[in-house]
Computed example of a mutant assay.
Amino acid sequence: MNASGYLLHVAASPNAEQSTSTALGRLLTEQLAHKMRNVAVVERDIGTHAPPVPSRQFAADNLLPLEQRSDNLESEILIEELEAAKALVISTPMHNFGVPAVLKAWIDQILRPQRTFARSSKGKQGLLEDRPVFIIVTCGGPVTGPYAQQDFLTPYLEYVLPTIGLSNIQVIRLDSMVRTPEHTASQIEQCKAWIAEQVANLCEVA
């Protein structure tokens, strides 16, 4: 764990201040920051300021040694921002059963061979130091119960983040958030209880 740094909140909702997932992500980061001796919080709002999708040059550079690559300031900023974080909070809606395009773009910018993962005979090996990762997912439709829809978002994040070394992952999904106001309120209360549990279980770091 980094001796200095901050909490990084990656917010993927396009709804800005009206977003339930963003609000809950902020609540989690605030409580974690207090538990972790009042560290600072950095919010990366990719929902309204999306990272660029990989260009032809970006894809070509990923096949080259690091020293031969073109300067890619945006990618390096996002990677360094993640490297400096003591913990990562991702708050995201589920879009069409999967990952929002803006979150996929962020992932494509930070998953870079020889920079955040290394190729080996045993597969990809993460190059980043592990740290706590907390993921809050809001789902418009049901993802549990007899009428559950397929969730491609959660398994994807649980697979792709360890590729760069982040395997200490905790996830909560808020189910059927467009059903009724009462159901939505119940899901939010469950998430607040989960947040309290995560904060209580987090060991303080210097």
Score class of each variant (00 low, 15 high):
residue 5 G to Y: 03
residue 6 Y to A: 06
residue 6 Y to G: 00
residue 8 L to C: 09
residue 9 H to F: 09
residue 11 A to R: 00
residue 13 S to N: 07
residue 17 E to Y: 11
residue 19 S to W: 00
residue 20 T to K: 10
residue 23 A to H: 10
residue 27 L to T: 14
residue 27 L to C: 12
residue 28 L to W: 00
residue 32 L to H: 02
residue 33 A to K: 01
residue 34 H to S: 11
residue 35 K to P: 01
residue 35 K to I: 03
residue 41 V to T: 08
residue 45 D to G: 08
residue 47 G to V: 03
residue 47 G to E: 02
residue 48 T to I: 06
residue 49 H to D: 09
residue 52 P to Q: 12
residue 53 V to P: 01
residue 55 S to G: 14
residue 60 A to N: 14
residue 61 D to S: 07
residue 61 D to H: 07
residue 62 N to R: 15
residue 65 P to M: 04
residue 70 S to W: 09
residue 72 N to Y: 02
residue 76 E to Q: 15
residue 79 I to L: 11
residue 80 E to F: 03
residue 82 L to P: 00
residue 82 L to R: 00
residue 84 A to K: 15
residue 87 A to S: 12
residue 88 L to N: 05
residue 89 V to C: 10
residue 91 S to P: 04
residue 93 P to G: 06
residue 97 F to V: 09
residue 99 V to T: 10
residue 100 P to N: 08
residue 103 L to T: 00
residue 104 K to W: 03
residue 105 A to E: 04
residue 105 A to C: 10
residue 107 I to P: 00
residue 110 I to L: 03
residue 111 L to A: 10
residue 112 R to I: 04
residue 113 P to G: 08
residue 117 F to Y: 13
residue 120 S to F: 06
residue 123 G to P: 11
residue 124 K to D: 07
residue 126 G to I: 05
residue 127 L to M: 15
residue 131 R to Y: 03
residue 134 F to W: 15
residue 137 V to C: 11
residue 138 T to W: 01
residue 140 G to L: 05
residue 140 G to R: 07
residue 140 G to K: 06
residue 141 G to A: 13
residue 144 T to P: 05
residue 144 T to N: 14
residue 146 P to Y: 01
residue 148 A to I: 02
residue 149 Q to P: 02
residue 152 F to E: 04
residue 152 F to G: 05
residue 155 P to F: 06
residue 157 L to M: 12
residue 158 E to M: 10
residue 159 Y to V: 04
residue 160 V to L: 06
residue 160 V to N: 01
residue 162 P to R: 08
residue 162 P to N: 13
residue 168 N to E: 14
residue 170 Q to T: 10
residue 170 Q to A: 11
residue 172 I to G: 03
residue 172 I to Y: 04
residue 175 D to H: 07
residue 183 H to I: 11
residue 183 H to V: 07
residue 185 A to E: 15
residue 188 I to Q: 07
residue 191 C to R: 00
residue 191 C to T: 13
residue 192 K to N: 10
residue 193 A to P: 06
residue 195 I to W: 01
residue 197 E to Y: 09
residue 200 A to I: 02
residue 203 C to W: 01
residue 204 E to P: 09
